[in-house]
Design a protein around this nucleic acid. Structure first.
Lengths: 203, 203
DNA sequence: CCAATATTGGGCTGTCAAGCCCATTACTGG
DNA sequence: CCAGTAATGGGCTTGACAGCCCAATATTGG
């Protein structure tokens, strides 16, 4: 995240345009099929601008990962996504993915990219760990709030449940993408949420 | 799967050697980083042999997908993996992944490859759908056996539970790979299995 | 206003990988 | 034994893409 150039607002806008265009292209067609030229045309910039803001492809991918991590947190939405601190909120969160065909096209905007670049020799591990870590934190915060409020038993393992929810989403989107059908994602998410619910205190 | 050449046993062995070497390289470094030369050296074949058995890279990837699908089913193991028709069997299946560092290196041998090639323009969708379909069938068969035996309630939704198990594994391996820690995979699998168990009839 | 610095343009080149070619050797079936 | 076919060897061409270069223009800060 250390910038070697001072960026004016105009430069920032150009940089943002590049990242957004690259993120969209990579999401739809993967890193490998997204070449310099496609990014240039989509972002309406010239060759040297890519070199200027991103000396190599790896730095661009890192920027896209960071950008996608923010999207996943809802930081880019207006208004910002609310907390996931109730079963109803989790269901709302889940359902928000089931009625958009975007998931079928490219899976999870962060996870599918992470999966693709993780096993290459690109130095992107930090960005991936940070992205998943911040995402997990959102679930942990919501689950902890539920536990503190009494919606979950005191001995409910927050991290365990957060892992289950995250994995259900990541795996569900992959299966949905493969089957071109949201049913696997729906089933996985509902199962994970039901499992969270099973830790509700007896009434 | 239609062969345009008649293959002698020797040819079949060479072909198998190529597929296995390519599968290993792709698993570790991804499709993009696995070039012709690396496959040639690993399989100890010459350039024309690749062209002979696999006219282009896409056909090789298709073969690797089919090969990985067989591995996932345990068809390549001796003895073949048993049925997943009890909670104990599911736990044994889950634990078999948690003590091997292979998962941390490359995720699911089939799913990570599927995720990588799915959004490219390669014509591999059939192989992916077939691979996941056969895998799902194994879970469905095991769950149906449990239901028929009375280990699960009669109204337990077999497909729903199969989706939950598969997604937990796929998502769990991805998170484990990212974190370089099997904990997310363990949590996801245990949660999914516990959810299956919650459909046991009251006793 | 003016220097320093940021931003932009577009061409160019080295690298690398996929797939092709022609020839040679091994094997099979009758 | 001997055609016909399969298997092998290695070089080569073509194309694509990442990164680089030399400029020119715009903007900022003092």
């Amino acid at each position: 995240m250390t910038e070697e150039h001072k960026l004016t607002p105009k430069g920032l806008a150009t940089r943002e345009r590049i990242v957004e265009a690259a993120a969209e292209l990579i999401y739809l067609h993967g890193v490998h099929a997204t070449n310099n030229d496609l990014v240039r045309k989509a972002a309406r910039v010239s060759g040297s601008q890519l070199s200027h803001y991103f000396p190599d492809k790896e730095s661009l991918i890192r920027a896209v990962l960071a950008w996608r991590a923010d999207s996943m947190m809802g930081l880019r939405e207006t208004p910002p996504r609310g907390d996931l601190d109730s079963i109803a909120a989790l269901h709302t969160w889940a359902d928000s993915f089931l009625n958009q065909e975007t998931v079928l096209a490219g899976g999870c905007s962060f996870g599918s990219l992470a999966s693709e670049v993780m096993k290459t020799d690109l130095d992107v591990h930090d960005e991936i760990a940070i992205g998943f870590g911040r995402w997990q934190q959102q679930f942990r915060a919501g689950l902890a709030a539920m536990r503190d409020r009494g919606d979950l038993r005191r001995d409910a393992d927050i991290e365990y449940l957060a892992h289950a929810l995250m994995a259900a989403f990541q795996g569900g989107t992959l299966l949905a993408q493969a089957a071109q059908d949201t049913a696997p994602l729906r089933d996985a998410l509902y199962a994970a949420i039901a499992h969270v619910e099973s830790f509700a205190p007896p009434r």
